[in-house]
Nucleic acid binder design. Structure first.
Lengths: 343, 343
DNA sequence: CCACGCTGTGCAAACGCTTGCGGCGGCGAC
DNA sequence: GTCGCCGCCGCAAGCGTTTGCACAGCGTGG
């Protein structure tokens, strides 16, 4: 049972109100220097820590932020949460993390729970669900910033990674190795990043004067290794003569590995494959995966900083969205195309 | 800005105290049935949800539990948290999740933060750090249950998985396929699960009348794919004639894959490999990994249930620890040993 | 020398809820 | 018919903070 403020005040020989002012950064200047010292010593001696319930009852703020994610087991989320946690906890905030299972009704329920907890702010990272939903659903609860996903309202504060840059890097790498027949295994068009990457893929090829052959892109209707296997399988069997593949993400890339193996081909000798995300373990598969590295921890940290900024002066207009740069991690799943491969 | 209880009471035409009793499960029987109805309707109409700060100020409980984990990016934690979250949120509790980076000083800091937040209970899942630490460090903060890790105090409430069972299943599987020279790539002895699995490995071989050859076990001093590659590499080069390997966990198994490939051998044709944990993605590697499946979500859920039980009647003696069963997921990294392999 | 401002502190209210206590009926038992 | 009990409800205290306001003391400028 921790000490109360009144006990600290008594030990320091001052009124509780004075002790409160002495301990609170913002009001410390209203108290004489040696009183501050006495109070801090007393607080330390009694191992005082303020009761957050009592405090938030009067301040009407909880120093908590809600973080809404789809599925924690998706490898991009843990580092993202680390980023969020690093900056929020440094600022004295606590992150309340909720899973939605990518289920919209469940998401609504968890939003209600966060509202009941009176969170001061919201970080929304549900990549798929409710993409058409009105952002007011979240912002009516508390100031919110979106991360990873692009909200329906383009003006809402958002932290994204630069999909276009990532795809350009990947394509550039493949082209530099001599590839011309570069396929793309794309995600379903409902997902904003899927369309962004597809667009960037076409752009990147076009800019390099390479024919953009519609036969080289295949669209999955869900994102999984199996879908990747199936999609690339079709492409391989179509005789389109692909020598390299840009997969929607790493998981899909693993599926592509399988499709290649199933046909007795080898990666990277016969087919080069590049993934996207650089998820945990991408260096452990065989061959280690060349992939676009996105720093999800930095994205989480940036989103948290943005949110805390909004909380610190609610009057200011919302910050502008940012798009963080990415890099290419070259491993062993890409190599120059074999001579004489069918065009 | 949500409604207050007094507003609900006014709308229902009763005193706030009555409204409180009508809304609170435990005190509902002190109120007439139709008053309850009126109050609930009013609450629903005003979209009332009680202010947790005000409530916990008087009840002296926060309906939050702290969950302490080492590193969220370790794949066993996300499902574990899902299990915890499922049962805590169903009971109206909120889980506060903190990362320690497996750093003891950081862990102490985060414990202090949780204490400052007045968590009602603690779930401790830091697998490695502070294994020698006095469990009172946690239980002085709040009732705590340990999960995944074995605390220094064997009487502390704990949820573990049955390492012995897992190893027995794995060894049984290999023996049934005809293996006799089964190696074990063991974890460092500081880690309680490492010694438990090593012991079980010896036991399992012994029970089946197979020679327990010390030359077949090699101990890593850290747990990583690289350490696994190196450890199994030594074993393979030693000429001990191994035909199968039980790795400490899946990550280490991936390292073993590499060691096998580096020597021009093939898995499973030349060497069978079995992992431990069945982490996310174990079905995606090549070959898909045969591994001991442990249901971390169930462990998290069980730990949470245990903790909530302790919270619901603080008087009762702490629950006894449990050890959850595991299963073997057979994939394609194991096969009968090749004829003529050196004994 | 007075009035005024300023600094440091105390006082008390307020935040929104729970809960012990007491009162007021109504009903059953004698 | 009276008494007692019990079910239902209102009253008010109190949880541990923060903060507007008042006030005391003191230095300063006119």
């Amino acid at each position: 049972m921790p000490a109360r403020l009144s006990e600290v005040a008594a030990l320091a020989g001052v009124h509780p109100a004075t002790a409160s002012r002495a301990l609170n950064e913002a009001t410390r200047n209203k108290v004489s220097a040696d009183t501050v010292l006495k109070v801090r010593r007393a607080a330390e001696q009694l191992n005082y820590s303020p009761n957050p319930a009592a405090r938030s009852l009067v301040t009407n703020r909880t120093s908590t932020v809600g973080v809404i994610i789809g599925d924690l087991t998706v490898p991009l989320f843990p580092p993202l949460l680390r980023g969020v946690d690093d900056v929020t906890s440094a600022a004295g905030y606590t992150a309340l993390i909720v899973n939605t299972d990518n289920d919209w009704s469940r998401e609504l329920a968890r939003i209600a729970a966060l509202q009941a907890r009176r969170v001061d702010g919201l970080i929304v990272a549900t990549a798929t669900s409710g993409d058409q939903a009105d952002p007011r659903i979240w912002s009516s609860v508390a100031p919110t910033v979106f991360v990873v996903r692009a909200p329906a309202d383009p003006l809402a504060p958002t932290v994204l990674s630069d999909d276009s840059m990532g795809v350009h890097l990947a394509v550039e790498h493949l082209v530099a190795q001599g590839h011309r027949r570069i396929a793309h295994v794309a995600g379903p068009p409902e997902i904003s990043t899927a369309t962004a990457r597809l667009r960037a893929y076409r752009e990147a090829l076009f800019e390099r004067g390479i024919e953009v052959d519609p036969a080289l892109v295949t669209t999955m209707d869900s994102i999984s290794a199996d879908a990747g296997t199936e999609a690339l399988g079709r492409l391989l069997d179509s005789g389109a003569g692909v020598t390299a593949v840009l997969a929607f993400n790493d998981i899909v890339a693993y599926g592509c590995y399988r499709a290649v193996r199933q046909r007795g081909l080898r990666c990277p000798e016969d087919i080069s494959i590049v993934g996207y995300s650089d998820m945990n373990g991408a260096d452990l598969v065989a061959p280690p995966l060349t992939t676009v590295h996105v720093d999800h921890q930095a994205m989480g940290a940036e989103a948290a900083r943005m949110l805390l900024g909004m909380l610190s002066d609610p009057g200011a207009r919302p910050p502008h969205s940012v798009r963080l740069p990415v890099s290419l991690t070259v491993r062993e799943s890409t190599a120059p195309p074999r001579q004489g491969v069918p065009r």
